[in-house]
Design a protein around this nucleic acid. Structure first.
Lengths: 182, 182
DNA sequence: ATTTGCATGTAATCTGTTACATGATTCA
DNA sequence: TGAATCATGTAACAGATTACATGCAAAT
């Protein structure tokens, strides 16, 4: 079906009205672990969705002059979003990750270089994991109601933590295996 | 540094000489779990790498007429490839996965719909895992020498298996949590 | 003979990033 | 008053997919 950014924006506007800037911030924080978009992609998409009649906006004044566009979803937009949500689950191409590619080729480096690259990657993913676990702290309990947006937040954060933990475990095993035969 | 396809191709040609078609097949099989490219991207890139002096080719005749270009890496290409391999590990943007986005938004669906979407995803990832484990069978033992390409093969396949196992575990936990409160 | 796979390319389109560009508001 | 953040946009380029286009070779 594609047009994923469209549905990501519709999904967020389905929860509450937001400005382009708010959307950008959301992509930088909450969704960052599985989707992202820069403001240079968001603003044109908002324009397009407005033209398609999927969203609309009202202008608000911040301070005395600054105009901001507060977008909300329309009936048409909600319909298209739900239609997308209900479309069948499909296998996706496995995401591209440069560090796995480098590990794939790492045989051409000497053992010391292999080890130091793996160690650097472990450090990177440890930091990411720490950051994710910090985010998890804001949930003092597991959200009870699956129909709230906090519930979705919680699920994907849990998924991201599990993913990082496994990545680290994998990298550590790689390191062990390389070190074993030096 | 970017230009990842360039280095992916150089890395493969560093192991052995290949045609564009061979590269395409490799991207469909071995590398598929962490990198991919269509032939329409590969052929122009080969042309470019040839012009840059990173690779060169000789024409071979298959059958009586069919010409194929057998590419090999040049000294310049090898140098640039190793330079890339040795460049510092950097944090990457987390890869985009549509199914995580849908799960993030799943609160707007009713419990039955949430459950069936999760069940479909579990099935997809179970199939993928099975396929990966089948691939693993070709290694009757763990490759001993970290300087061979089989060793890299083995490592990334192990990583892909671990990733799928964790994904399934996550999806199952999501399903449980949704089912618990219905 | 027909189908599948081998083999190579281009064109159009879509998606995404980096850079360019501007200006107001808020907080220290 | 200066820096950080809020706020919105466009242009140029890079990366990737889908569709268009062709033809040989091998196996059934």
């Amino acid at each position: 079906m594609a047009r994923t950014l469209k549905y990501a924006i519709l999904g967020l506007l389905n929860q509450q009205e937001l400005t382009g800037y708010d959307l950008m911030k959301t992509f930088e924080s909450a969704l960052n672990e599985f989707w992202s978009a820069k403001h240079s992609q968001i603003y044109p998409e908002l324009k397009k969705l407005d033209q398609e009649g999927c969203i609309a906006y009202k202008v608000e004044i911040a301070g005395s002059v600054l105009e901001k566009k507060l977008y909300h979803i329309t009936e048409k937009g909600r319909e298209e979003f739900l239609n997308w949500m209900r479309s069948e689950a499909e296998p996706e191409a496995t995401p591209k990750e440069v560090y796995r590619l480098k590990i794939f080729f790492s045989g051409c480096l000497d053992t010391e270089e292999q080890k130091s690259y793996l160690a650097e990657q472990i450090e990177i993913h440890r930091l990411r994991l720490e950051h994710l676990k910090n985010n998890q702290k804001k949930f003092d309990s597991v959200p009870a109601d699956p129909s709230t947006s906090e519930f979705g937040d919680y699920l994907v954060l849990m998924g991201a933590v599990m993913r990082e933990e496994t990545t680290i475990e994998w990298l550590e095993r790689c390191l062990e295996m390389v070190a074993m035969r030096e």
